[in-house]
Design a protein around this nucleic acid. Structure first.
Lengths: 233, 233
DNA sequence: CGATATTTTGAAAATGTTCAATAGAGGTGG
DNA sequence: CCACCTCTATTGAACATTTTCAAAATATCG
């Protein structure tokens, strides 16, 4: 279906292959394997040997980490152009989390040795990877701080603002989170219980700050969220 | 005082320059600036422009992130051979945290353009950096999960185990955390209050699992900690 | 030895969670 | 097309964990 030029353009727009000469992107393209995942299907599981690296073409993935006791946190949602499987780049032996599809998803994949070989040949790929990993690391550090020091309400506000930035679509009504997200899913992102998320969103809905219908959220007043984020504790 | 060969050996043992040819390490050495920090002195502050990259030679640094309201979390403690200032590698504009010396510390430093130029020339440096950042990212994700899902006692146990791994010194009495760490400092690592840390450590001391004297902690029974980490919630 | 910083401990208070029950939305098959 | 079934969301109330507040004890440093 997709031809060579389409693939090249897609890859050229990704965080990892950005700013590279077309010949190199084409080399990467030739080494790539195309994959498809249906909704809920897993790309890999926590603890699996980290044997490949992926880029989302269309669709959305969800990375989670599961505790020995079964409880889980959402690490990140990944949309088009974003990479999955940083463990393969970083030379970790196993995947530190589980990644699965939130909706039907198309990916490009590379076996670990292939992508590591590309990085060795073209330092810019490694440098781009470093930039991606660095900004994800920073974001995770910030979440860690929020989880340590902020009230649940403020964390929920931060989580929503962050979601809007990563997966927000401007509409007439405001900013819509453009993939389905249940209260439970949201709670796993914000580090709280689904009940508290529900109560908080209900209260905000009453104030006209957000509205939500069955797994979809629209933010009407982003400024109010920002205000809640910075309120005195 | 330290001569060229000593410096080379030091650099060859660091996480970033490991496994590189000596000529390249020597090139990095020639470009390095030597720095010293006294106890409590800051290397850089959160929000400063990320204009250099550092490696600890001797001593210990502490990376923290401060919230707008003044509360803070400890991101990491850095010992000999470890890098500080990943923002410089990742091309972030500003430092996401503040780093300062826990004890008198010697460092090597490189201006951001210099270290980035080295990475561009020698992909292996970027790949090593990716490995370091990857494992720190993974650790932070794990802390995030712990903070989200575990009780304070288990988090304190995890924090202590992690400290033992990163800065533990085997002694006749057990494993000693080899730098001074107050209850407050510990609390900022575990994401709790200094009071809860004090209570918990006191209880463990009664059971002979740990002992502590003014800012130093010794773990007598690491296995008991592991057990607490995995206890049913 | 005095001054300052750190640690301990008790009791009160608060923030969220858990438990429980109901309501609503969507999808499926008769 | 409607009835049913399941998954999702809402809401109240009891409960629990942990924080906050307060005060005293202990240790270190000059």
């Amino acid at each position: 279906m997709a031809d060579r030029d389409t693939d090249l353009n897609v890859l050229a727009g990704t965080e990892i292959f950005r700013s590279l000469p077309m010949e190199i992107i084409d080399e990467a393209r030739r080494l790539a394997v195309r994959k498809r995942l249906s909704r809920r299907e897993a790309l890999y599981h926590q603890g699996d040997s980290a044997d490949s690296f992926h880029i989302v073409i269309v669709g959305r993935l969800r990375a989670i980490q599961i505790a020995p006791d079964g409880s889980q946190v959402a690490l990140r949602y990944l949309g088009p152009g974003e990479m999955a499987g940083y463990a393969a780049l970083a030379g970790l032996a196993t995947y530190p989390g589980t990644v699965s599809a939130v909706e039907d998803t198309h990916l490009f994949s590379w076996p670990t040795p292939v992508i590591r070989d590309l990085m060795g040949k073209y330092a810019q790929i490694a440098i781009n990877a470093l930039a991606v990993l660095g900004s994800r690391y920073q974001e995770t550090q910030t979440r860690l701080r929020e989880l340590s020091t902020e009230t649940v309400e403020r964390r929920i506000a931060h989580t929503l603002t962050r979601l809007a930035k990563q997966a927000g679509r401007r509409t007439a009504m405001g900013i819509e989170i453009c993939f389905p997200l249940s209260r439970q899913d949201f709670a796993e992102l914000a580090g709280t219980s689904l009940h508290t998320v529900s109560r908080t969103l209900s209260a905000w809905e009453k104030d006209g700050i957000v509205s939500s219908s069955h797994r979809y959220i629209v933010i009407h007043q982003p400024d109010f969220l920002k205000q809640i984020e910075n309120e005195a504790s």
